[in-house]
Amino acid sequence: MAKPSYFYGIHAIEALLNQRPMDALSLFVQQGREKDAHIAQIIDTASAHGTSIQYSQKDKLSQLCASPQHQGVVLHARPLGFTDERCLDALIAHEQCLFLVLDQITDAHNFGACLRTAVAMGVDAVIIPKHHAASLTPTVAKVSVGAAELMPIVSVTNLARTLGQLKQAGVFVYGTALDDAAAPISTVDMRGKTALVMGSEGEGMRRLTMECCDALVYIPMSGNAQGNLQSLNVSVATGMALYEINRQRQPN
């Protein structure tokens, strides 16, 4: 089992305490911040579940979590684990299930930002490959502002096989790519069972992953950047693509 980690940031800690309070071990609070409304609520929640509370200087908290961006609270807790792949079976049953597939996104900040957007846009689960992908670190938890705790994140050994299984179950797999065969995302009907695949910023989707896609789409842009998906940060591109899918699914 992985060693406990130091989580930081108000929203990340709130989500952890609300979703899996038994994994919380010790809460460290910056001296003088205990009367802040959000932090006071965190202290109350942690205390209610028997988590020890310690008060420390700001620099001490920065040392614990290796970041000055702790917002006055650091939580020593067991790390979040990936969800078992079998959870996908139940989710696929939904008529408008939506999966976000991140192919080799290794940057923790991009990963966390993608998770934050995924929760906001109604994604049912995020799927990543077991290798060459960011882990569920405290940095990911902080950047996702707690979203990592709110949705299944599935790590699979063979991404191509998983995409094949989704397709067999009636999920249409769209890949984002700069390709002559790609269509503008706004022209494609994504209201049914959908999986959206986003590739890494540098390389995009791997060849085998692309071959598993039913269709390719891109985000049209204006000016010199038109059609150039790589001119966007992957988390920004993910947000734009998911927004379009969510827009299509809204009632008229």
Results as ranks from 00 to 15, higher is better:
121 M>E: 03
50 G>H: 05
248 Q>E: 05
204 G>Y: 06
251 P>C: 10
100 L>C: 00
58 K>S: 14
171 V>C: 12
54 Q>L: 08
124 D>I: 00
97 C>Q: 01
58 K>C: 00
229 L>K: 03
215 A>C: 02
85 E>C: 10
182 A>N: 14
78 R>N: 10
34 E>K: 10
81 G>T: 09
69 Q>E: 10
242 L>S: 05
55 Y>N: 06
166 L>C: 06
54 Q>Y: 01
67 S>F: 12
148 A>F: 08
115 L>R: 00
122 G>C: 09
67 S>K: 09
88 L>M: 15
146 G>T: 04
96 Q>F: 05
25 L>H: 10
83 T>K: 02
136 L>H: 03
240 M>A: 15
43 I>N: 12
20 R>N: 14
186 S>P: 04
241 A>M: 15
52 S>V: 11
146 G>A: 02
172 F>T: 11
87 C>D: 05
163 L>E: 06
161 R>M: 13
36 D>C: 08
212 C>S: 15
230 Q>Y: 07
249 R>D: 13
51 T>P: 09
39 I>P: 15
23 D>E: 14
123 V>Q: 02
248 Q>V: 07
184 P>I: 06
195 A>Y: 04
118 A>Q: 01
171 V>W: 09
128 I>A: 07
241 A>Y: 04
64 L>H: 12
115 L>Y: 09
197 V>Y: 01
251 P>V: 12
124 D>P: 00
87 C>L: 11
243 Y>E: 07
218 Y>S: 08
94 H>N: 07
2 A>E: 14
19 Q>F: 06
135 S>C: 08
141 A>N: 02
233 N>M: 10
78 R>S: 04
141 A>S: 12
49 H>T: 12
76 H>Y: 15
238 T>F: 01
28 F>S: 12
32 G>W: 11
174 Y>S: 07
199 G>I: 07
152 P>Q: 11
71 Q>Y: 02
147 A>D: 04
91 L>V: 13
14 E>R: 10
56 S>T: 04
210 M>S: 13
2 A>W: 09
142 K>G: 02
70 H>E: 04
103 D>G: 12
50 G>K: 03
140 V>H: 02
19 Q>D: 14
